[in-house]
C-alpha cells in the first residue's frame, strides 16, 4: 500500500469504468503495473466491489427506503456483532451501522413499497431476540447519496477565454 495505490483508489472511486490505458496516461504507470496493483487491491479486499450510482426514481422504478433505528441488548462475549451480522444477511438491509446515541443499530432498508418495508420490519426485525425497541423513518426524498448530489445544478457561466 503506497501513494500510487491510494491514487489508483481515488481514481477508481470516482469512476471505476476507466480502462487501464486511460488510467495509465493519467498516472504515468504502465498498464501491466496498474493491473497488478488493482488485482492486489482486490485480493486484499481493499476494493470491495465495483458498482453504479443510479437514480432509480428517474428510471421509473423507485423503491421505498427507510432508516430503522434499533435498541439492542448486547450479548455477553459478542456485544452487538452476532445480531448485527444476522440482520445484515437480509437483502432488504442495504446499510447497517453501530452508532452512538439513543439507539444502537441503524439500518437503511429498502423495498418495493411502504407495505413491503413495514412488513419486513414487523415480521423480521422487531420480533428478533434482544431487540428492545424500533423506530422507523421513511425516506421522503434523497438529495445526496454517497457523495453524489441527485438534483440538477445549473452550470456557472465561464468566459471562453481568460488570461
Amino acid at each position: 500500500m503506497d501513494d500510487k495505490d491510494r491514487e489508483l483508489l481515488r481514481i477508481l472511486e470516482e469512476n471505476s469504468r476507466l480502462s487501464v490505458e486511460e488510467i495509465g496516461s493519467m498516472t504515468n504507470l504502465i498498464p501491466a503495473e496498474i493491473e497488478a496493483r488493482i488485482h492486489a487491491l482486490e485480493e486484499s479486499k481493499i476494493i470491495r466491489k465495483y458498482t453504479t450510482v443510479i437514480n432509480w426514481e428517474k428510471a421509473g422504478n423507485a423503491e421505498v427506503s427507510a432508516i430503522i433505528e434499533l435498541k439492542v441488548s448486547p450479548e455477553r462475549d459478542f456485544g452487538y456483532d452476532r445480531i448485527a451480522e444476522r440482520l445484515s444477511r437480509f437483502k432488504e438491509v442495504r446499510t447497517l451501522r453501530l452508532i452512538t446515541g439513543t439507539y444502537d443499530l441503524q439500518l437503511m432498508v429498502s423495498g418495493k413499497n411502504m407495505q413491503d418495508v413495514s412488513r419486513f420490519v414487523s415480521e423480521h426485525v422487531a420480533p428478533m431476540d434482544r431487540i428492545r425497541e424500533t423506530a422507523t423513518h421513511i425516506v421522503m426524498k434523497s438529495y445526496k447519496e454517497n457523495g453524489n448530489t441527485l438534483f440538477e445544478q445549473q452550470e456557472a457561466e465561464r468566459l471562453p477565454y481568460s488570461f
Binding site: 456557472a156 465561464r158 468566459l159 471562453p160 477565454y161 481568460s162 488570461f163
Partner: peptide, 26 residues
C-alpha cells in the same frame, strides 16, 4: 491579442475551450 478569437467563439456552438485561465471547479 485574442479579440478576434473571442468574437469568433461567441458565434459558435459546441466549442471546447482550453482558453480559460481559471479553475473549472466551483
Amino acid at each position: 491579442g485574442i479579440r478576434k478569437f473571442f468574437d469568433l467563439v461567441m458565434t459558435m456552438d459546441d466549442v471546447i475551450s482550453l482558453g480559460v485561465g481559471e479553475p473549472d471547479f466551483r
